[in-house]
Design a protein around this nucleic acid. Sequence first.
RNA 1: GCGGCUAUAGUUCAGUGGCAGAACGCCGCUCUGUGGCAGCGGAUGUCGUGGGUUCGACCCCCACUAGCCGCCCCA
Length: 440
Amino acid sequence: MSTLAKQTSVVKAVRGTRDLLPPETALWNHVESVARAVFARYGFGEIRTPIFEDTQLFARGVGEETDIVSKEMYTWEDRARAQSEKSQSLTLRPENTAGVVRAYIEHKLGERGDLQKLYYIGPQFRRERPQRGRYRQFWQIGVEVLGPISSGAESPIRDAEVLEMLATLLDELGIKGWRLELNSVGSATDRPRYVAALREALAPVKSRMCEDNQRRAETNPLRVLDSKAPEDQHIINALPKIADFLDDASREHFAAVLAALDACGVAYTVNPRLVRGLDYYTRTTFEFTVPDGSGLGTQNALLGGGRYDGLSEMLGGPKAPGIGFAIGEDRLILILEEQATGTGEPVAAQKLDAYIAPMGIERNAAALALARELRRAGLSVEVGDGTFRLKKSFEAADKVARHIIILGEDELATHTATVKTFATGEQVKIAQTELQSLLR
RNA sequence: GCGGCUAUAGUUCAGUGGCAGAACGCCGCUCUGUGGCAGCGGAUGUCGUGGGUUCGACCCCCACUAGCCGCCCCA
């Protein structure tokens, strides 16, 4: 540590943020490339929206009363730069659906007439208390399917397609033991009717419930449904079910989603208590969870999503029903690391194809030239240094590569190379032109 | 935002009111073109930060910060 660092305080990553380093970043890249490949097969294109937006977007889209908007956003007043300019309240995006719908409206994507299938991968920001699987800057991989009514955006087949795609993605990533839970929260008019009924039903019984649930019964009755308090379950089970408050259209829509899932063999559980925290959700809502011990601690929700048929209008846009989800990428990575190692440790780095060990500094230039040739041919190669003793080269090579290529005076004179394969211990001296086929 | 637990070497962790420890890892030598094993040697660090108690604090007390766990919420 330098003298300077001892005297002054060290600047660290701020609470709830973190650096992602190799080799772990290789896993992130893997996850993202699998996701992109799957999305492409379903006809999705990538959208990249700004990392900060007008605060109004989230206030109106996500909902003023939600925890996210009321206490978890990073918001600041962006000062005016000139007399003619007004200052503006800006916010780091706490989620990406509102931004995507804003872009849909702004670029009049609905005028294109066809269904818009968009995906995004990027950081989101919420000022929450950090925990395992919960960070203040976290990454989401999400998709949105939306469009005018005539594009079929409201059709239950879209819901089922999105869910089936998720099942495929999680399977391809190798996530084990996931469960899909889904529910219908009804239309924009169904939900308030249900909440009113819930309040009414809770009024006479809430005094017999735990402290948390008494508070929820006042502030957010839907939350009572999530309660895990064992002593309150008999009361909760007797509360009205949202299914009884759905209008005919919503009921039929949900039934069609389930039928389509059955048809393509995606397993699910209908959870009448599943409610979500964002105001824009309508009709189908869902969550994919993993079992305890999967690496997430108490944050067992890997992803969540649902339909948002009125969101575009709430943001001043045209009618554009849609459905989407967001995967917690940080959580996905935690699960994969837990599965890979059983300990939650980061996975080991992938080894390079070869390590070139020049014997003596006079061989350095030739080693770099050979490396260039192999690298241009698509091989992954590290180059040592001629000042290293051969033993040191071996130790360094074994850590990072599958083969060591020894380049000494003899080899250079005869255009050959000595190659040893670490896994087998076999060593051969071959023409340099044969290297590529040997190393692959 | 509230409560609990924790913070010692690069890593994982012991430890005691009186000289700072182990394992693994790292560096060197045994060993100038053949590693993984072994032997010998070496460096690890303001004991999270700042105060307080004490002759003396890594240890006791307080505050702060951070991580983890629970609540809340969510991805």
